[in-house]
Design a protein around this nucleic acid. Structure first.
Lengths: 331, 331
DNA sequence: TATTTTTGTGAAAACGATGTCACACTGGAG
DNA sequence: CTCCAGTGTGACATCGTTTTCACAAAAATA
């Protein structure tokens, strides 16, 4: 069933059918004939042929480290909603946090497989920049800032600062920090710098023996907490770069006989669903992941449609969510 | 840059280049010439043209209710891994639990947009069956059983039965059950029937006033628990159709002054990450979501490649995960 | 040496749409 | 009556591959 068959059945030319489907630039009489034939046969134009001819796939590639994560699946949910509203679909590529795979997918996607790419990034290597520079299709980066590219990211510095200020306001003096690798600028560097700034402004310090670098998991948070406690048993608060890490840290604190929040306050980032069901509930910073996904999708569609030519860098706000794990300690 | 340009540059015919890229049925001399030109120009064949010609998109459509869910994102992670290994990519369509959208996407996908569809299903209407019947591409259903189609699902009945047996073995006598709509055969019907069977075999009953129907959320579980308690304040255990519901139920129990597990035992299904960080930790049934996704992806690739012609129904096992919320009560 | 089989080859026909073009109608204005 | 703008139309080229086909050259067989 191709456009030629329909044309023949309706007694018109192939071009007429094409116009019927697109411009609508056709006489009422033929239009009706064609409509009937299409209805009767259930004819659907071939997406493949349209794609070849128009050079539009109506597909957006989404590259992400892993899908099985609360924050990332929220971003994807947002992307899905917004893309759908514009008639685009989403090609998902999970990289398992493997930079090689990340590069491979960016390369695959840059080859006309999709009309645009949304890149949920963690770390940028030179290789990344090189591939991104050579991309011929629009790219929007989510979660990290990268000059010269459209990106939508969170105010990680501000969030870190506000969260630390909140913890300090509960009267804590000896803070610890469990972060992630600095190569991850947003999560590893910005959040720490925000926290550091608040701590310093309060006239306090965050010495190296009260800091650890974790992976993105509760198990890792658990391990790091144990290391910090053996070096500095007298801390009265710990801020963790993600809620997952914070959960692990909190578990270790409880195992070590400390009370949360009476002895040690705990706080995280991300407002993971988990954080409202722990005991105590976890103070965290909400980061508008879903909205970031929606905005990214809208931006890329605007870029593709040509409605928007410039790249923009959007920094999103945050909201400190005060819960049980940082209730006022001994004053 | 198309195949013709490469052919011209290498001084061979277009067909020769095509053969070089595919069969390899070409003389060593020309092969080398072509290799050089391709390397120098960085030529990549057009995916669009290949697709039109070969009728293979190397895409698998994945239709799911929502991505922002622990169980579903685990399935998707599994699908992603397995598809990737076979060179396929994944087109994600989230339906927000809207049957209309589900049907729409199945229709879109059935129109040559993808080579196969993985359908993470909840409820089957007649409309669903009709569309599924008319699908010309392979379909694999995940999470529900549907005769005549390849599907991979969980032993929800067995899981319900085993979980209830475990709860009963801790000495509980007055069980309550919070389920979901029976239209969802796997989660709503099978799990309940398994639980019922175990309860009946123990010579006990599960009367209507100790049963509620919830949505897939902790809030809903919270509400249902409150309704059950006002009708039957003396229950000593509650089994919930999902971990999310169980979390909500447990929260209400605690708010009402009851101790978990001393006064009331709580158990759920799914082994959500959340269930190991609540206080107490939640007894649940592990359901191998990731593996289900992997298997589904492998099956569909086999069907597409023609290595496998028949449809199969695969029932996966389960594992009761005994945690704090069902520790032995007063004996 | 004569005959078959194997290889390598380029021309040309799909694949199924879109878009350009020139042409033939209209009807209204001059 | 002529001219022109505006519509509707089908023929045809195009998109970039793959695949079939016929044919020639080389190799293997008799």
């Amino acid at each position: 069933m191709n456009i030629g068959d329909i044309a023949e059945m309706a007694g018109v030319s192939r071009a007429a059918v094409s116009r019927y489907l697109n411009n609508g630039y056709i006489s009422a009489e033929k239009s009706e004939k064609i409509r009937k034939v299409i209805e009767r046969t259930g004819y659907k134009p071939s997406v493949m042929a349209q794609t070849l001819r128009t050079k539009k796939t109506m597909l957006i590639g989404v590259v992400l480290p892993r899908i099985n994560s609360d924050s990332i699946s929220s971003i994807v949910a947002g992307i899905g909603t917004a893309l759908n509203a514009s008639g685009y679909e989403m090609l998902l590529a999970t990289t398992d946090n493997n930079p090689e795979k990340e590069l491979e997918f960016l390369r695959i996607f840059s080859n006309n497989r999709v009309d645009g790419v949304i890149f949920i990034a963690t770390v940028f290597t030179k290789e990344h920049r090189k591939i991104l520079k050579n991309m011929t299709i629009p790219v929007v980066i989510v979660g990290q800032q990268l000059g010269g590219y459209s990106c939508i990211y969170h105010d990680d510095y501000g969030a870190g600062r506000a969260l630390a200020e909140h913890v300090l306001a509960t009267g804590r003096k000896k803070l610890a920090y469990i972060g992630v690798l600095r190569e991850d600028v947003a999560v590893g560097q910005q959040r720490l710098e925000g926290v550091s700034a608040a701590v310093n402004e309060a006239g306090l310090t965050l010495p190296p023996e009260r800091m650890e670098i974790a992976e993105f998991s509760a198990e890792s948070g658990h391990r790091c907490m144990s290391r910090i406690l053996s070096a500095s048993p007298d801390i009265d608060a710990v801020i963790c770069a993600t809620d997952g890490i914070a959960i692990g840290a909190m578990q270790y604190l409880k195992e070590s006989g400390r009370r949360v929040p009476e002895d040690v306050a705990v706080a995280g980032f991300g407002d993971n669903v988990i954080s409202s069901v722990t005991t105590p509930t976890l103070t965290t910073v909400h980061l508008y992941y879903r909205e970031a996904g929606e905005t990214a999708a809208k931006r890329i569609v605007e870029r593709i449609d040509g409605r928007e030519k410039t790249t923009v860098e959007i920094k999103q706000g945050f909201k400190v969510i005060e819960r049980g794990s940082t209730k006022r300690g001994p004053s």
